[in-house]
Design a protein around this nucleic acid. Structure first.
Length: 329
DNA sequence: ACCTGTCAAGTCTGG
DNA sequence: CCAGACTTGACAGGT
């Protein structure tokens, strides 16, 4: 099994390269010249996109092919007071440059719209905003010139006291989405409500790939073993092309999320670095059936945690290091 | 230079 | 029914 490692949004080693500088709504409103304030938001957006490009260059220098782009690239986008404002065309050149670099180097990039995007919601207004958020993520990926291989990972959402109903609502709402949006979505199990099996069943039902988060699974499960769920999870990454020719590999390897508990008293929070133990035992079990896998590291120390994990992999029996960010197992 | 409270958004819990 | 917690990086305002 070939495994590629990636990390999320920002770097601990590249200095002054924040991809998510922002401005608060309060500050925006205090500025007298609204046009100038909007230009300022757009400058921040351009700067965030440019810093993301710097991170991709850093990734390339370290063989890192998997990366999640920050969803906070453009400050205040989607805010109610800025409904008329569409900065994505304004930033077309910056987006194009970023996407071109990713494509040129065969990098797998993704977004993770945050937990305010909830398709299981019973509230019409929340659903409407969630769809708008997905539309904006799709528009940004389109502006980058990236196809359906660049995906948006989301959670199922809240349960509102009845997980079964919420699950049905998610499925219904998902099916109402434009097909282009549906094709961009992956579903991830969360650490509180929709566990891996719940999420898997929904992912199968609507036909989207499932991202397994093994830390979330460790703190939210009904006694299921992730290794036993894996064959079904892996299956969600196979696609019927037009329903004709049977299952085919997508252009994408399955992806999992990896992090470690901060402490025994705070097991849900993310630790600075990743413990190799539980990860490795999972990988050894799935290796024979899984030719390739991408691992998104969700540790506080970001790329620093990735480098340290690679050091740990080097010392393991049966693991060969292919380059600075990938291994064979 | 450094510290503290606050921040767009949603959901859940406890009072 | 409402306030606060949750979670995160970064702002904003203060010393």
């Amino acid at each position: 099994m070939i495994i590629r490692l990636g990390y999320v949004a920002m770097s601990m080693t590249v200095q002054n390269a924040s991809p998510s500088r922002t401005m608060t709504a309060t500050t925006f409103n205090k500025l007298m010249d609204r046009e100038a304030a909007i230009r300022k938001l757009e400058r921040l957006g351009a700067e965030n996109i440019h810093n993301t490009l710097r991170l991709l260059r850093h990734n390339r220098a370290h063989d890192i092919m998997v990366f999640r782009i920050s969803s906070k690239l453009i400050p205040l986008i989607g805010h109610e007071m800025l409904e008329e404002w569409d900065p994505i065309p304004t930033l077309a050149a910056e987006f194009e440059e970023l996407g071109h670099y990713a494509k040129q180097h065969g990098m797998r990039v993704s977004f993770h719209p945050d937990h305010f995007t909830v398709l299981s919601t019973p509230k019409e207004d929340v659903l409407r905003k969630s769809i708008q958020d997905l539309d904006r993520h799709d528009a940004m990926l389109n502006a980058m010139g990236l196809g359906k291989e660049a995906m948006c990972n989301i959670h199922v959402g809240g349960s509102y006291g009845d997980k079964e109903k919420a699950s049905k609502r998610f499925i219904h709402n998902f099916r109402e989405l434009r097909p282009e949006i549906q094709q961009r979505i992956t579903l991830e199990n969360d650490d509180k409500t929709f566990n891996a099996l719940d999420t898997l069943e929904i992912a199968e039902e609507v036909g989207v790939p499932m991202v397994l988060d093994i830390h979330h699974h460790a703190v939210n499960n009904n006694g299921e073993d992730a290794r036993e769920l894996w064959p079904r999870i892996r299956q969600t990454w196979l696609r019927h092309e037009d329903g004709e020719s049977g299952p085919e590999e997508t252009h994408l390897p399955p992806k999992i999320h990896v992090s470690s508990p901060r402490s025994d008293t705070d097991p849900r929070s993310h630790a600075d670095y990743v413990e190799i133990g539980p990860l490795l035992s999972f990988l050894r079990v799935i290796a024979p059936t899984t030719p390739s896998l991408d691992i998104m590291i969700e540790a506080k120390k970001k790329d620093d945690a990735l480098f340290r994990l690679m050091e740990d992999f080097k010392e393991q029996e049966g693991v060969s290091v292919l380059n600075q960010a990938s291994i064979q197992l």
